[in-house]
Simulated assay, not measured.
Amino acid sequence: MAALNRLVLWNIDHTLVDVGRVTREAYAEAFQRTTGRQLVRLAPTAGRTESEIIFETLAFNDIVTTDDHLPAFMDALAEAFAARRHDLKVHGRVLPGAREALDALARTHGTVQSVLTGSIQASATLKVTELGLADRLELDVGGYENGVYSKAALLEVARTRAGEKHRNRYSESTTVYIADHPRDIQAAHIAGSPIVAVATGSATEAELRSAGAEVVLPGLANTKAVLNAVAQLTHS
């Protein structure tokens, strides 16, 4: 069998799924458990890692941070998401075309699919599992926020993990990121990989082009366009 030779990394929130309501509720609970206070203002979440969101949320709410805050908040956040497992199905949704794009790429020879996300691993896994996408993704090789890491660094982590699992080297040119925010574009370029940007989040197509995305799509509804973009950017 020929070696697997293409790695597709998916952002989760606002690219594959929308679980915004559950996220806000989980953050409110985690904040209260960590600080003993009610959450007044949640920091912007789009395109960011969990640690960025947590630190800025603490600052917005006049909490003086200590070394203990981040791990305690992350643990509380994971537990808050787990307690809302059912809510992910009720209030979350798979974005149009996401399931079809994952299925089509899964049928494409030589393609490994995983995730590159600013979410902690426990929460990320719950999102895609409860919304029925996990079986298309090799979650064990994904890049997750499990400390203070940039998405660019996490992309390198995912690339290394996938290479070790499949005994293959995934270079910058054979790895493509699919995401929805200008910060994701910046992260991909820092890591040396191309990106397919989709206007399914807060950024417009014009903003994604201006940020330097190699390919910009209005969404994932056109499966053929997604496949063509991945093939083009990974030189297949």
Rank of each mutant, 00 (worst) to 15 (best):
M1D: 08
A2T: 12
A3W: 09
N5E: 13
N5Y: 06
L7C: 15
I12M: 09
V17N: 03
R21N: 01
V22E: 03
E25V: 12
T35H: 00
Q38H: 08
R41H: 13
R41I: 08
L42K: 03
T45P: 02
R48C: 06
T49N: 06
S51E: 09
L58A: 07
A59W: 01
F60L: 10
I63Q: 01
T66P: 03
A72S: 12
A72F: 07
D75W: 08
A80G: 02
A82M: 11
A83Q: 11
A83H: 03
R85T: 13
R85C: 06
H86N: 09
K89V: 00
K89P: 00
K89E: 05
V90F: 03
H91Q: 12
R93T: 08
G97Q: 03
E100D: 14
D103S: 12
A104Y: 13
G110D: 08
V112N: 04
V112C: 12
Q113E: 10
S114H: 07
T117R: 10
T117D: 10
T117C: 11
T117F: 12
G118Q: 05
I120T: 12
L126I: 14
L126R: 04
L133N: 07
A134W: 00
L137H: 06
L137R: 05
L139C: 11
G143Q: 06
E145C: 15
G147C: 07
Y149T: 14
Y149L: 10
Y149H: 13
K151Y: 05
E156A: 12
A158R: 02
R159K: 14
R161P: 09
A162T: 15
N168Q: 15
R169H: 15
R169P: 00
Y170K: 04
S173N: 13
T174P: 07
H181Q: 06
P182L: 02
A187C: 05
A188G: 12
H189M: 03
I190D: 14
I195R: 02
V196C: 04
V198D: 02
T200R: 11
S202H: 14
A206E: 14
A206L: 07
L208G: 02
L208N: 04
E214C: 08
G219P: 13
L220E: 02
A221G: 06
N222F: 09
A225L: 02
V226G: 01
L227H: 06
A229D: 07
V230N: 04
A231D: 13
A231G: 06
L233F: 09
L233C: 10
T234C: 08
T234Q: 09
